[in-house]
Design a protein around this nucleic acid. Sequence first.
DNA 1: CTGAAAGCGCTTACAG
DNA 2: CTGAAAGCGCTTACAG
Lengths: 342, 342
Amino acid sequence: MKATIKDVARLSGVSISTVSRVMNNPELVVPRKRQRVLEAIRELHYSPNALARGLIHKRTGTLGVLIPDISNLFYPAVLRGMEDAANQSDYNLIICNTDTSTVRRNSILKVLYEKQIDGVIWTSEPLSRNSYEMFDTLDFPVVLAATHSPDYEIPSVRVDDEQAAYDATVYLIKRRHTRIGMISGPPNDPISGYPRIQGFLRALRDHHLQFDESVCVEFGKYHFEDSYEAMKRLHGKYPEMTAVFASSDERALAAISYLHENQIRVPDEISVIGFDDTRMAGMSFPRLTTVAQPLYNIGYLAVDKLLKVINENPIEELRTCVPHQIIERNSVIDCTQRAVIK
Amino acid sequence: MKATIKDVARLSGVSISTVSRVMNNPELVVPRKRQRVLEAIRELHYSPNALARGLIHKRTGTLGVLIPDISNLFYPAVLRGMEDAANQSDYNLIICNTDTSTVRRNSILKVLYEKQIDGVIWTSEPLSRNSYEMFDTLDFPVVLAATHSPDYEIPSVRVDDEQAAYDATVYLIKRRHTRIGMISGPPNDPISGYPRIQGFLRALRDHHLQFDESVCVEFGKYHFEDSYEAMKRLHGKYPEMTAVFASSDERALAAISYLHENQIRVPDEISVIGFDDTRMAGMSFPRLTTVAQPLYNIGYLAVDKLLKVINENPIEELRTCVPHQIIERNSVIDCTQRAVIK
DNA sequence: CTGAAAGCGCTTACAG
DNA sequence: CTGAAAGCGCTTACAG
């Protein structure tokens, strides 16, 4: 049996109030008694029951994290950042997979609510009206990570997707590519789809590159094989393309695989730039040039912000936009060098 | 303010006992009252406080998962399996990173203990005497995932590392490779180091391949760059090698990167086989042939087993060994074909 | 079938 | 400085 505060009180010959005090306000207890209590605690391997404490303080020191699917390689770094931030403030994380299902989301939120979670991080997915109302009626403090809400006043931490896509495209243009394709996520995805396509198109437009959206963009859903097929279609309809912007590292690797397997050299014939900078980006051949999201920081800052909301500390800005950055590796070549090699 | 059972009792004009009953044993309450209570619950958005319940039942429905580092790409699939198993039985998971630090482990275990976690999954790391004693005195139900303990009677779920390494090596030998190198983890690692080296050597021995361990094995610690360097050293001292067994997919990708970057064709000149079958394995070029661990299942079964221990259901076997399997992709070629190509 | 009471393991005014 | 008491939000014998 686990020892309780009563056992400690009995063994040290004081009341449970006193035991409680030596744990929470030791200076209120005379040293002699304090010692006796401390000894009893040690002897009994006593440690306080967080449920009882939580009941009184209305705090549990645990946060809920909702992500679409932990097996997506985008999350390991993000979650590590969240964990570290939580850990630093003595919080724990309960991580749950929603599989983008509303039903699942509801049932998760219900049990987290019962477990008296102090707040939740909502990751990646756009925040529907329905989700918003759920958080609102449950009165959950929420922070959005790697997503944001233009419609509701909810704190968020993410990258400027439109601008990042713009910069990635400009990076290619600066290297004299003029015929650039894109492998995108679903156009109705308000995070990794729509804004990145817009950024891509804006860059082309700004540089007076003629383009026809229907020939230079192809869509791969989330997984590798989809994007592999998308690359095949893209290459089929736009064979003169010299570079491609893929809106995730996974899509970029799929594109590279397709090219390799069809004897098209990367980057000598076609350059590829990715998005995210997951760990895989450094492990491919050629190593992937990509626009990095500060994944770890996104996670870290999101939890940090949530903790501020919970503790009613002021937060500097509602929607924080963390900087992206192009990581140059070996999958992009200057288009003129390309000509030489050829 | 959150509604409590008292609010529901007041609104529906019954005692809290009755409210409690409609939640837990509705058949004990007359339909008329039951309806009234149900309505009040809905009206107040009432949902029971799991802390109060946990205090009484001495159960929280949450499990602790200790892993070395969630940002390792080995874990996403394992954790997904754990999550699904937990979810299916209405349990939640608190995931914590130990960074292989004893201090960190102790502090994590302390708070999980206070939070009255129902049990813990200990992942990947070998179970030291010290850890064992910790679990023992805390009286935590524990299951080991992707590791096991020869010394203590603790349930575990993992692959037979020695045999899997043996099979991977035999796979190369069957394809007529006779000069095979290995990129291994640290030899003192009782999971991904020692047994896999032993399996590798046993395969060579069984097939009468002459070998000198000091020339055909090199060590890369955990990360990519280490293994890249290890591959460089291995190739330097064993240039006639035609195939390499890497004891993780990450090591295999590092080996492939090294070979590519030095214009050594894979698999045409040197074949590479990996270990784990993480998602990256399908995304590399060439796609990686590897010995798969059933990562998802390891996670799923470990939680399943832990739940059985917690509920005092019998478990079929203390140490379950899940089957490994070689996934053939494109990074290994028959050594005779290799000669032809050359 | 239902309510009052005790209790789960704590914390925190309130007296003294 | 310290103890008795009330209370956090529930569940569960025990009477009736």
